[in-house]
């Protein structure tokens, strides 16, 4: 045995039949993934929040499963499936593709890491860079996120290597919401704090199984209240914050507590 491997001997002869089979398998994989996506989106709209967050994260797992099955069917059609052949072909292919598609492969590896480590999953509300929204789908290379303005943002998975990922709910229904209030410092803080607590209790969106907190901080320009509570459904977070804000303003206007406004330049300095 010379030890030389003729790489071409590792391959089956590619003929028209093989090409047709491979095309059918790729088409079937594409069709199945699209069907699964449609089915999951349909279920997501119909199911209550509790079941939705069980179903959605399994979508990328199904996609991965179909891909693995497709590859396992295609490889024996192309390569004579012996260990020697597989090592030879995959080694050469890996070297060639690695240079040409290193970013793409990095995305795919990141995608597999995301599924394994569960950094985020469909249904999670995440902030990546300056994009905040709900993850609608996880592809192999990218994720699709829908912002509160109904904009779809496509983000490559490679962001997990060097960017912080802020996950607000991590697969759960509950998500902490914060409504901010700014008042003139001359008022009874204990009364305002109690009233804001009652404002949260009165909201029809409130999840009473979780704690309500009112954080008070004195600033040079006034008093900053942060009303923190959880809605029943994470998708209602903006309506919930709006409800808290409207009820809070109504309640506190009766108590003659004055809201405060700052010139924009001063507020920007304090926000930094």
């Amino acid at each position: 045995m010379t030890g030389d491997i003729n790489i071409t001997q590792a391959f089956h002869g590619i003929n028209k039949t093989s090409i047709v089979y491979i095309a059918i398998i790729i088409a079937a994989y594409w069709l199945l993934t699209k069907l699964i996506e449609r089915l999951f989106f349909l279920l997501e709209g119909r199911l209550s929040g509790r079941f939705r967050l069980y179903i959605l994260p399994s979508m990328p797992l199904f996609r991965m499963f179909f891909l693995i099955v497709a590859i396992m069917i295609i490889i024996p059609l192309v390569i004579k499936p012996t260990l020697q052949n597989l090592i030879a072909v995959l080694g050469v292919a890996g070297l060639a593709l690695g240079f040409a598609f290193k970013d793409y492969i990095s995305c795919i590896i990141a995608g597999i890491t995301v599924i394994y480590e569960r950094c985020y999953r469909p249904g999670d509300w995440v902030k990546i860079g300056d994009a905040y929204g709900e993850i609608k789908s996880l592809g192999l290379r990218t994720l699709k996120l829908v912002t509160p303005d109904d904009t779809i943002v496509t983000i490559p998975h490679t962001k997990i290597w060097n960017t912080n990922i802020y996950n607000a709910n991590e697969g759960k229904r509950e998500l902490l919401c914060v409504a901010d209030f700014y008042f003139h410092p001359k008022h009874d803080a204990a009364q305002v704090r109690q009233k804001l607590y009652d404002v949260a209790l009165a909201s029809p969106y409130i999840n009473l199984e979780r704690q309500i907190m009112v954080i008070v901080a004195e600033k040079p320009w006034g008093t900053h209240y942060r009303l923190k509570a959880y809605p029943i459904e994470s998708r209602d977070q903006f309506q919930f914050i709006s409800d808290l804000t409207v009820r809070g303003k109504t309640a506190l206007s009766k108590m003659d507590v004055k809201a405060i406004t700052l010139p924009i330049a001063v507020k920007d300095n304090y926000n930094q």
């Binding site: 009233k195 009165a202 009820r247 109504t250």
Partner: peptide
């Protein structure tokens, strides 16, 4: 009443 004035 489940209202911010309803629990006092």
């Amino acid at each position: 009443l489940r209202h911010h004035d309803g629990l006092t």
